[in-house]
Amino acid sequence: MSQTAQSSGENPDENRRDFLTLATTAVGVVGTGMALWPFVDSMNPSKDVLALASVEVNLSNIPVGQAIKVMWRGKPVFIRHRTEREIKEAEDVALNQLVDPETDDARVKKKEWLIVVGVCTHLGCIPMGTATGEPRGDFDGWYCPCHGSHYDSSGRIRKGPAPRNLVVPTYTFLTDTSVKIG
C-alpha cells in the first residue's frame, strides 16, 4: 500500500514514518508470524503418530530365497531371506559401479537377512520383486514399475532414475528368528 500513499499525496504522515509507527508495525508483524506457527505445527506428526509402536516380525516362516512385506509406520518394509548367490552378488560389486556407493556389509546385520524400506527413492512407488514370480529387475533385487529403477540384492540402486539406495530402517534382532523394526 505504500505505493498508493505516494501517489494519492493526501496522507500527511506517510512521508515521515516515525520510530513509534515502525516499531509497532514490526511488533505486529512478528506477532502475526508467531501466531501462524501453531497452525503449521499442527500438521506435523502428532504425539500418537510419533509414539506408534515398532513392529516385531517372526522370521522363521520365510524360506531361503523368498521375501515378505510388513507394514511399519504406514510404509512397507521388505524382509528378504537371501540365498548364498544373492549374498555373493551383493558383496562382489565394486563400489565404483554404484550410483550411491555403500558396501553390502554396511546395509545388513545378518548376511542372510536384508531388511529395507520398500519405497522407491525416486518418487515413492513400491518396487516389485518381493512376491515370488514378480520381476526382480536386472540385478536380482527389485524393479520399480513406475519409472524403471532397478535395485540389486542389497537394495542398492543400479539402473534407472532413482537417486539413492532403498533405505535401511533401524532394527534389532531379538532372537535369531525374530526382528524388531523401529
Binding site: P38, S42, S46, K47, D48
Partner: peptide, 13 residues
C-alpha cells in the same frame, strides 16, 4: 480428544 491431547497445539486451535 485426540486433537486436545495428541495433535501439536491442537488444544490451542
Amino acid at each position: 480428544e485426540r486433537i486436545m491431547r495428541d495433535v501439536n497445539y491442537g488444544w490451542l486451535i
